[in-house]
Design a protein around this nucleic acid. Sequence first.
RNA 1: GGGCGAUUAACUCAGUGGGAGAGUGCCACCUUCACACGGUGGAAGUCACAAGUUCGAAUCUUGUAUCGCCCACCA
Length: 887
Amino acid sequence: MSDLPATYDPHAAAERWRAAWNEADVYRADPDAPGPTFSIVIPPPNVTGNLHMGHALNNTLQDVLVRYRRMAGDNVLWVPGTDHAGIATQWVVRRQLEAEGVDFRDLGREAFVERVWSWKGQAGGTIVHQLQRLGVSCDWSRERFTLDPDLQRAVTEHFVKLYEDGLIYRGQRLINWDPLDQTALSDLEVEHEEGAAAELWSFAYPIREEDGGGEIVVATTRPETMLGDTAIAVHPDDARYQHLVGKSVRHPILPRDIPIVADAILVDPEFGTGAVKVTPAHDFNDFAVGQRHDLPMINILELDGRLNAVCGEFQGLTVKEAREAVKAKIEELGLFRGTQAHTMNLGRSQRSGAVVEPMLSTQWFVRMKPLATPAVAAVENGFTRFVPQQWANTYYAWLRDIQDWCISRQLWWGHRIPAWYCDACGATIVARTAPEACKCGAEAAQLRQDEDVLDTWFSSALWPFSVFGWPDKTPDLARYYPTSVLVTGFDIIFFWVARMMFASLHLTGTVPFRDVYIHALVRDKHGDKMSKTKGNVVDPLDVIDRFGADAFRFTLIAFAAQGRDVLWDEKRVEGYQRFTTKIWQALRYCHMSAGDADASHAMIVPEDGPYERWIQARTAAAVARIRTAIDEYRFNEAASEIYAFVWGEFCDWYIELSKTTVYDEAATPAAKAAVKRQLMDTMDVIVRLLHPIMPFLTEEIWSRLPGREGLVTTARYPEPGDFASDPAVLDEIARLQAAITEVRRIRGEMEIALKVELELRVADPALHALLARHQRAVWDLARCKVVLSSEEPTASATGVVGGQKLVIPLQGVVDLSAEVARLDKVLAKSDKDVEQLRKRLANPSFVEKAPTELVDEVRGKLSAAESRRDTLRTSRDRLAAALSAGA
RNA sequence: GGGCGAUUAACUCAGUGGGAGAGUGCCACCUUCACACGGUGGAAGUCACAAGUUCGAAUCUUGUAUCGCCCACCA
């Protein structure tokens, strides 16, 4: 195999293997195929989206699970797709039209929606292609879009069912209004900006003359809303105001009187003046007061956020302008009563950034309490499990204190609400298909469908089963639903996870997924959230371009410790890119030394040498640890186990040990064949273990291993039982490694080059026999000749392995005072070990109460440490004495 | 106001009851026939602080400090 390139080209490999997977159609699921079922639905990215670090992490995690389960023999399905993302998408196209000088409203609904679809056809696939560059193994034949006809049908079914069950209603309520997008928003779509500077501005309402005159002072951060005030509230126990309850004040600007009411819930008598202006149509707390006291609710705003006709002279002003104008007017009327600095939280639309106005509006709502209760119970009872578990608390907290969900949006792009209003009788008809006629006899022409569309998340909530064709009973639904696991970020537990839970429970009678793996956010290396304004955004595609998808994916996985944010540090990718190089170089070695090896897979254990048995036993242990780690969603652990095995055991030790045979001209062909086969077999195992994390590299290597058929992506994932375990050989090689390391340490610290050949004297026959058996390895790795001898020349270096002394004569090799200095250093450590162990055993309650095995273990350690210390000390003293005698 | 999380080597992070690890960086030596994107060895930490539980605490409890996030929102 001399045609093996000197380096790995991740880009060529990605191209090649993506095409090969497609060609072989290996990720298409078959509901009739055998095996345990493993299914995942992708968190559908917005169709307008571009791949960001969050997507990269999220999808790499899913891909690791999916590739692993597939190789492990499961019947795996990973459903991909995108979300129509109502507001976001409407905005993209709206801006495009504006750039062309067209106001989207002039285009009309039908033409606009058509335009969005055509945009989707051209540009909507961007994120899908970007995901593919990451190497994800979705079943693309099952790709779904939340506005596909099937999924629209599911949404309609969802709406109608909830309506029929009394869980959806239409009503006039206070909602969050985005004056820029001119649509209602749910509570979740409003983000609260903390600590906005504001002023608490006080003014007086004059009490009616017939009620005794005088004034009552209120404070507000929003003076303009006084135009919609319909009450003044005071605390019922507040002595200052008790006599005024039931009386009225005169509105200083508008021609109306306003009652003074007592409300213990709203009013804190300690705060401000203890009197509160009440604007039920523009404040959530005030709205509740209005309901309690049956107050009129006066809407003062147009849909674009400007003041309406109710406001008289202020009509047409923006809220901001009106604030100043009202203040000026009140000062002019002599009613201004002072101001003080104040901080408040400002609600902004998540999408548009506009300041959200609480507004009285007729909208559709989902009654949440009856839906939330079973959703909480399902997690409490373990039908769905959060990983890490702590996120269940977040989920509970939100669902237990939930408000009704406003689901109608004043947009054109989305699922149209399946409700019709009869012009003749005013009836509301909710139906799965457009009704032919009204009960009152009115014909279809007199029925108008609701103009609004549904919150995007109303359709996302169905994703785990709508993608399978629900409400039809499809084979996919039967086989793959409920899904195995949902992998997502904590930021959408409320938006999405909770909603999928209650929608699934209500509509399908089952939880949508067994596990929810919640991963963290990807931040920059300082822990800051990546954002365009901060300019710290890392583009995953750029990382892939520079380092390759394999190194990028490995980095994400290695960073993905449970419950922790991922702090992006490019240095780490560089490190893992080196890991790909290392593996590639290992492959080159295997080929150079074993290119003509027998291609057979068979592991013929009895004929194998000790190093082959050793690496097999180590492989068994590594495989077990790696499988367990992935099974338990400890991704970073799986990554570091593979890394440590490949680099620290296979490359550092097995490959080096294999050279004792590979480069030994005297070795028998059978011995060489066994080593060559082992090299290839271990590469084979490594590549299969690593495939879920580094799919392209491993596929490339697999294709270059002799005798391996097909694709690694369809190969079997290794199991610990595939490899012979051999405790005796593990112990033997551990001693060999310890001896080699001890010699290397002496060489390193005393700066004795490897080309200086040394003698390694061992007095213990057993240890000598062991090292002599591995003389070739000791020679290759430490340049020592092993000798059985209890003679210790004064000029020697001393080491200890397994309680036995190693002596290395150094006469003429090195300055012996260096060995004294080295031994002093080692002794200091050794003394400390002994001291610590003694201290532990000196504690009677430790000996008494700690488990016997542990106490025995510590005793063993102590005697080993003491013997080691004594050995070293004797040598050190002898050498020091000789030196001073000689000097 | 309520809740959650973090604080471990210079840096980025693992480590959920038995005496602290990795990668990067640093120092020394080595161009030895897979790899200098390498090898070998080394230095480096009162595990934020305080108290408690325990024979034993980075790990469990409580408190404190600092940082971050989520929820609620006294006008």
